[in-house]
C-alpha cells in the first residue's frame, strides 16, 4: 500500500502510462472513464429511443397529414408511407448498430439477456405483421386495419419497453413502457385518422422526451458517482 503523500504526484485523467494521478484527478478520471466505457460497451440507448421517437413522429405524422381532410398540408399517400418506411428503417438500423456493435467480445449472463431481449423485438415485429396479414385475409376492413395496426405496434413496443425496465431494474424505462402501452391502446379511441396524430405526438413525442431525460439522468448519475 502507498500513503496519500505519495499520491500527490502531479497528473490528470489522461496522464500517460504508469504515472500516478492525484486524488482529485483520480476521482474525476474514474467518473469520466466509467461514462466513456459504458457508452463503448453498452451503446447509446438514448440514441435508439430518439431514432424511434423521430420515426413515429415523422412517419405517423405524415400518414395523418395524408389522410386527414382537415390537414393544412396536402401530403400524397405514397409520400407518407415512404416517410414512415424510411424513418422506421433508419431507426431499425440505428437499433441494430447500437445493440450489436458495443456488445461484441463480451460474453456472460448480461450479454445473453440483452441478446434475447433484442430477439424479442424481432419476434414481436414479425408476429405483428403476420397477425395483421391474417386479420386482413379474414376480412377485417381496411378502415379497421388502419386503426388497429399502428395502435398494436405501439402497444407491443410499450410492453417490450416495460419488460426491458423490469429486466434492468430501471423504473424510468418501465414508466416509458407503461406510457407507450397507454398511448397505443388509447389511440384507437381517437378514431381514424386521429389515432395517427395521437401516436405521432404522444407516442413519438414521449420517446423523444425520454431520450432527453435519460441523457440528463446519465450525466447526473456519473457526475455524482
Amino acid at each position: 500500500m502507498i500513503s496519500p503523500e505519495s499520491a500527490r504526484s502531479p497528473g490528470h485523467a489522461t496522464c500517460p502510462d504508469d504515472a500516478s494521478p492525484s486524488v482529485g484527478a483520480s476521482l474525476s478520471f474514474i467518473t469520466a472513464w466509467r461514462r466513456q466505457t459504458a457508452r463503448r460497451l453498452f451503446g447509446n440507448p438514448e440514441l435508439v429511443l430518439a431514432a424511434w421517437g423521430g420515426a413515429w413522429l415523422l412517419g405517423f405524422g405524415a400518414c395523418y397529414l395524408a389522410s386527414s381532410p382537415r390537414s393544412a398540408l396536402a401530403v400524397p399517400g405514397w409520400l407518407a408511407y415512404l416517410v414512415l418506411g424510411v424513418s422506421s428503417a433508419t431507426a431499425g438500423v440505428v437499433s441494430a448498430v447500437e445493440t450489436v456493435r458495443p456488445g461484441r467480445g463480451v460474453v456472460g449472463p448480461s450479454r445473453q439477456v440483452t441478446t434475447l431481449y433484442w430477439w424479442s423485438w424481432l419476434l414481436a415485429t414479425g408476429g405483428l405483421c403476420l397477425l395483421m396479414l391474417g386479420l386482413g385475409r379474414a376480412g377485417l376492413s381496411p378502415a379497421l386495419l388502419s386503426l388497429a395496426w399502428p395502435g398494436l405496434a405501439v402497444l407491443v413496443s410499450g410492453v417490450l419497453y416495460a419488460v426491458g425496465g423490469a429486466l434492468w431494474q430501471d423504473r424510468l424505462y418501465y414508466a416509458l413502457g407503461a406510457w407507450t402501452v397507454a398511448v397505443g391502446a388509447a389511440s384507437t379511441f381517437a378514431g381514424a385518422p386521429g389515432n395517427l396524430a395521437v401516436l405521432a405526438l404522444a407516442g413519438g413525442g414521449g420517446l423523444l422526451v425520454m431520450a432527453v431525460v435519460m441523457v440528463a439522468r446519465r450525466t447526473n448519475r456519473w457526475t455524482e458517482a
Binding site: I30, W33, R34, T37, A38, L41, F42, R104, G105, V106, V107, G108, P109, S110, R111
Partner: peptide
C-alpha cells in the same frame, strides 16, 4: 474501471 462496468459474471475478450 472498464471491467467493473460489465456485469459480475461477464467476461470480455482480450482484443475487445
Amino acid at each position: 474501471v472498464a471491467l467493473a462496468t460489465l456485469g459480475e459474471r461477464d467476461q470480455i475478450a482480450f482484443p475487445r
